[in-house]
Design a protein around this nucleic acid. Structure first.
Lengths: 199, 199
DNA sequence: CGGTGAGGTTAATGATGACTAACATCGGGA
DNA sequence: TCCCGATGTTAGTCATCATTAACCTCACCG
């Protein structure tokens, strides 16, 4: 029984394993939390047993770090691009909303983990994630400042966080509405909410 | 060194210790998560060492259960009362908003734990908490149905969850604005967002 | 073929942590 | 005054878990 049943890598696509692990881990972290999920759980979810993960990540925290870094990078660069390409602030805001809603609807687990587990990321990476998050928020605040001049930035920042809360509620109300309708509802609610930040 | 330094209960108010523990635990759970917080941590936060907690709660999960049960009860009964006393749906909605905003602003840790850690509550209690949460949501949906007839309940439910997300964003944007301004901003954004649910 | 590297496997190992046991202390009745 | 209940204390106990060690195996390249 020693090393007899080994298992089949069977010509897997390059790096697909890492991605598969990250995806499984995201789902588990979202459902049970970082500390509530064991390495064995994650391994099990991808069909290998526990320690196999160390062939792909240096540890559990590193795995989380990579996951969150990737999310905050995607959010931020997507936002930056959209804003740059928009003809005016009005369209920029629409584009930001679209980006966040698309992401939240298609990756609910990542969204959940992203705003729950930052505290478990070890220091070198944590700072960078925070930085990207801050930049992402500032992307919104900048657009909103242009749209509602005269509204103090702290208020816009608070409003932005509130809208994130609204948009990221998706994982909690999963299944109530189909994605199309949900996207429309969220967009419309968010726009209306933001319009109230100016007063 | 055996049992020499015992410590002083010193005529504490009745049951105040339980409350003190619950409060400390809420702060720790909010900051580090249920599994990220040890019994020793909680004990330390109230000036006793670890196992002393078992004099007040039967275990860590029981502590969490009591905490969440209390929160969902407070939210639900407060909402039910407010709605009953309101002259019409318009005022009822205002009262619901006021209640949720007051609670979220004054107990950010409880709000955070409340929508993160339900999964760690053991079964008998979990069902009851879920039930109260459902009733709380239905309180909102009922009022909204009256206000926006013709809007399908699933949509109203999704909108309600979205608004909870918006209002509960408070813990994430702590300190940006003073509580007064924050309350006003949240209320105004929430109302505007809800108004969009009808269309 | 021969060996090498990627990716798995099962057994330690060492911490940490929930919970229990055995034992104090003290304030407040009887 | 003496006992008891409420609360603490410290030292186990037993699981669980991250991480490491030591070993396999297979695809592929020369």
């Amino acid at each position: 029984m020693r090393g007899v049943t080994t298992a089949q890598p069977l010509t897997r696509g390059r790096g697909s394993r890492r991605a598969e692990i990250l995806e499984a881990a995201a789902a588990l972290f979202a459902a049970r939390g970082f500390h509530g999920t064991s390495i064995e759980d994650i391994g099990g979810a991808v069909g290998t047993s526990g320690p196999a993960l160390y062939r792909h990540f240096s540890g559990k925290e590193a795995l989380l770090a990579e996951m969150l870094l990737d999310v905050s990078e995607r959010l931020h660069t997507s936002a930056a691009n959209r804003v740059t390409e928009a003809p005016d602030a009005e369209h920029a805001l629409d584009a930001l909303l679209t980006g966040q809603i698309e992401f939240a609807l298609s990756h609910p687990a990542l969204i959940t983990v992203h705003d729950r587990e930052l505290g478990n990321v070890p220091e070198p990476a944590r700072r960078q994630i925070r930085r990207l998050q801050r930049l992402y928020v500032e992307e919104w605040v900048t657009v909103l400042s242009e749209l509602y001049p005269g509204c103090p930035p702290p208020r816009l920042r608070a409003a932005t966080h509130a809208v994130f809360g609204l948009l990221n509620s998706t994982p909690h109300s999963a299944g109530e509405l189909d994605p199309e309708a949900m996207a429309g509802l969220l967009r419309s609610m968010a726009r209306a909410a933001l319009a109230r930040a100016q007063s």
